[in-house]
Simulated scan of single mutants.
Amino acid sequence: MPPVSAAPSTAPRRRKAEQRAEKMEQILDAAEELFSRHGLHGVTLKDVAQRVGVHHTLMNYYFDDKKTLFDAVLARRAAVTNVQRTRALDDYEAASAGRPTVEGALRAFLDTDLDLYIQGGERWKNYAAVVAQVAAAPEWGADLMEQHFDPVVLRLVEILRKALPDGSEADIFWSYQFVTGALMLTLARTGRIDKLSRGACRSDDFAAVKDRMATFMAAGFLSVCRREGREQT
């Protein structure tokens, strides 16, 4: 009886897949850093290739064009932050036993995200700056924000409606607009507050932001949504 031949080893194939995945991470990290500093239009595929240390033609093996690369950079960490924020919001609503507060909901949404930037180091802060750029891009930013972030934002709004049963839809959404505006300015790390405050505040001090933002924004929500006798527009 002839010997049974061993099944072909999958080790070389696995190593190749691991090498490809590792190279992809290197490309995404490099692109993330460059996009965070120079924006979508200030970076080329060749710039990314040079940062990674590969020939620029290899970039076309992984990505069709620069916009595809940018979208991949955004999607990679969006998946992480959305899972964590959704879980935090669900846990908060369950713990509130039907009586959520505005600040409690905002802390579940904002603090969970800020913790990623505090604990994740410079790479996560680079990603934060990319998100801030997307939010401020009038031509294509809204579509990407909708694609990646609208479900978790609407989950927050759902809880805020319960915390503010007398608040109008318009007031709640305008108040959220102001929250996200402040958050995006924070994520951009422009350095302006450093100069204005003469060093009392730092743009990259996300722990200080976490300590204050939800409390500040909750007061705004309550003030806007509980106004009495306001002029109807």
Rank of each mutant, 00 (worst) to 15 (best):
T190Q: 08
G104L: 00
Q119D: 14
K195N: 11
R76S: 06
L58D: 07
F206H: 03
S175M: 00
G220H: 13
W174G: 03
G53S: 06
R87V: 02
N60F: 13
E231R: 15
L222P: 04
L183C: 05
T57P: 01
I118T: 03
G199I: 01
M213P: 02
T190S: 15
T57Q: 09
T112D: 02
A128R: 00
R230W: 10
A72G: 07
D71Q: 14
D115G: 02
N60Q: 10
V130I: 06
A129Q: 13
P100K: 00
A11M: 10
A170E: 12
G39H: 06
L58N: 12
S203Q: 04
L114E: 01
T57E: 05
R51N: 08
M213W: 00
S5C: 11
G229H: 14
M24G: 03
G121I: 03
D211T: 12
E122Y: 00
Y62I: 00
V52P: 05
L69R: 02
L156K: 02
V4T: 12
D204N: 11
K195L: 15
F221W: 03
A49Q: 07
F35L: 11
A17Q: 11
A219D: 14
V80N: 05
D71V: 14
A30R: 04
K46D: 14
V179M: 11
R226I: 04
S96H: 05
A30Y: 04
V152S: 11
G167Y: 04
A17V: 08
S5Q: 11
